[in-house]
Design a protein around this nucleic acid. Sequence first.
DNA 1: TACCAGGTAAAAA
DNA 2: TTTTTACATGGT
Length: 312
Amino acid sequence: MQQRSLVLTPTPPYDFRLTMGHLASFGTGARVNVFEDGRYSRLLEVEGKTLLTEVQSAGTVEAPRLDVTVHGEEITDQTLEYVHGTLAWVLGGDTPLQEFYAAARRDPVLAPLVKQLYGLKISQTPSVFEAFVQSIFSQQIATNVARIIGSLLLENYGSTISHKGDIYYAFPTPAALLPEGIPGLRAIKLSNRKAEYILDVAAAVVDGSLDMEGLRYLPDEEATKRLLALRGVGPWTAHWLLLRALGRMDAFPAGDLALRRVVAGLYFKGKELTVAELEEFSEGWAPWRSLYTTYLFAALRRGLLPGDILNP
DNA sequence: TACCAGGTAAAAA
DNA sequence: TTTTTACATGGT
């Protein structure tokens, strides 16, 4: 196996540990986005080849620098360039923070959180398809169940690379999901309906009738419209995709139960909020609602919020 | 044993 | 047009 290296320089401030820790805690995160001992490892499929990338911080929050090692066969300059672009996107280095910080510091609830999470950026999935699949099987089930299903998906469909005794999984491509059909996805504990949603989209991507990755280049409104037209995608999924796959800064999944409870607990003394009320409240956070959302979830996962905030 | 969990489409009213 | 209901599975 060949090995090459490259360097990434995110815009400061950038906290690699916070940003990757948050990424690894999401959805299937732990299996496909490995973050251990300060090293982020991730398999990427490039031009039909499977590459293992390993990223380590070689800088500071104020002067970030990331050293990347790429392992694989026939790593051309072009391949390396593609990997560079993909990782820059995945690691969220260009997330604009200054205006969000200025606004959040004026908010008594957010001010201490942005201080503790200083330098946290929004990581992105390498493909829109990956976030779509993760969102579908996270719908209306407990996060730990979603994680189990995610692991099964990787083990059953993902290509792998062995390196220094560890097995790394790539997130399955649309084409990889088609041959096993509905029964294959039922076998990994998805409902019949969710299996249909995923296979419908996978088939449309493979036959070229759906340019899912092209959604990245459309304005928010148009991208949202096209996402909502997909079976299985409602407002909650569409907004999470805008936030974590399309790199948009003002997405807000108001239908999210956990988000609703967190905001209710922090801003409304625990009084339950309807989706419409949360949506209205969030308007004060525009145009940085993706960042508010990300910081609240990061705070939640890191135990910076009251422990019982999800159980009113 | 029921009921709920980081929702959505389809049926029923 | 608005409001229920089925859906899979693991935890409590």
